[in-house]
């Protein structure tokens, strides 16, 4: 906050492709009883048409908040937006009237959440909850709607889909519930799917299946995916381009391959090094020492300075500029790895 940064201009983006969704300089925060704090600072990223873009970072860095803000799902108060735009298909979502926003949610942008166990309404049948989407956005007869729902459930690899429609969430496992969430999000054939850590709460084999499923569906349906995760493995699997967030800021953006081969920001490097690799012996992960500064005690300089192995005096005093390496990579760091 010490000085104005020119981050949006120097943003590297997924090349040539026209962005479907772009966050531009989004700064927002929360007002709580103890005072207000900034949760996202000048966050910019874009998702091009038909591609999968990853958003990674440790817990609490603002990944979910950034998409919730974009979808206007955060109640205000406590959330407030200070500046920025969320442009989707040429329109700023933050300026839409609620009624227009409603036509985008679930219709042009589908969303799946971190918590499959609690994201479905326990008192309504799966069928009701799925048909509801179609009732809102499409005018279909009940029978046609049911057919579409069973088709979509089948596509997500759910057996006996017609029976599932009659079931209730508590009768299903977490993996199944997440598949149903995916099916529900895709019912209207959205242009963009926001997948907020879709596999975090699931066990490993189910994780792999869900990721594979998303990949297939993307190719089938020609949609864009914004994949939020704190797992770089997921990124390596499925993303073309990646944004790395740290303590409410985007600190690096690069093509997925580049992120792994030549990470520029020390934080990105730290993330990559702390990944468990099965090939290596059971030497425990190298974790990044220190803690993420809370939203209420961010330093004047770089947020990562305290934990950084390359930290200098400048890092403590001044916020780093976003530096564009080439169109494939940009880093916000005073001393990036070459």
């Amino acid at each position: 906050m010490a000085e104005q940064k020119a981050r949006p201009d120097s943003r590297a983006g997924p090349d040539n492709a026209e962005p479907l969704l772009s966050l531009k300089g989004l700064t927002m925060g929360f007002r709580t009883d103890e005072g207000s704090f900034i949760a996202l600072e000048d966050v910019s990223y874009e998702v091009p048409k038909g591609q999968t873009v990853g958003l990674v970072g440790e817990s609490g860095c603002g990944k979910s908040v950034s998409v919730m803000t974009a979808m206007r799902l955060l109640p205000s108060p406590p959330a407030f937006i200070r500046s920025g735009q969320v442009v989707f298909d040429g329109r700023d979502l933050l300026k839409l009237v609620p009624e227009s926003m409603r036509h985008i949610r679930g219709n042009r942008i589908g969303m799946i959440f971190q918590e499959p166990m609690t994201s479905l309404n326990p008192t309504f049948s799966i069928g009701f909850q799925m048909r509801e989407v179609l009732r809102i956005h499409r005018s279909l007869k009940r029978k046609e709607a049911d057919e579409l729902c069973t088709d979509m459930l089948a596509k997500t690899g759910i057996g006996a889909p017609a029976q599932r429609l009659k079931q209730y969430p508590h009768e299903l496992s977490g993996g199944l519930r997440q598949r149903i969430m995916i099916a529900m999000a895709l019912l209207c054939g959205p242009d963009l799917l926001i997948a907020d850590e879709p596999t975090t709460a699931l066990d490993v084999t189910i994780q792999a299946q869900i990721l594979e499923l998303l990949k297939e569906l993307q190719q089938d349906l020609q949609m864009s995916i914004l994949m939020i995760t704190h797992d770089l493995g997921v990124v390596a699997e499925s993303c073309r381009y990646v944004y790395v967030m740290y303590a409410g800021c985007v600190v690096e953006s690069a093509e997925a391959e580049r992120i792994f081969s030549e990470p520029g920001h020390p934080y990105t490097r730290g993330l990559i090094n702390s990944r468990p690799r099965i090939a290596e012996k059971r030497e425990w992960l190298k974790t990044i020492p220190g803690m993420v500064p809370g939203p209420d005690n961010r330093p004047p300089g770089c947020n990562y300075a305290e934990r950084c192995e390359r930290c200098t005096e400048q890092c403590r005093q001044e916020q780093p500029q976003f530096v564009q390496y080439d169109h494939k990579q940009a880093v916000a760091c005073w001393n990036p790895y070459p």
Binding site: R102, R105, G106, F113, L120, N121, V133
Partner: peptide, 21 residues
Amino acid sequence: QDYIRTARAKGVRESAVVLVH
């Protein structure tokens, strides 16, 4: 609850979010 957020993300009208879900 999370399922209320889901309902909103589906495009359910706010009145129905409260009165139905």
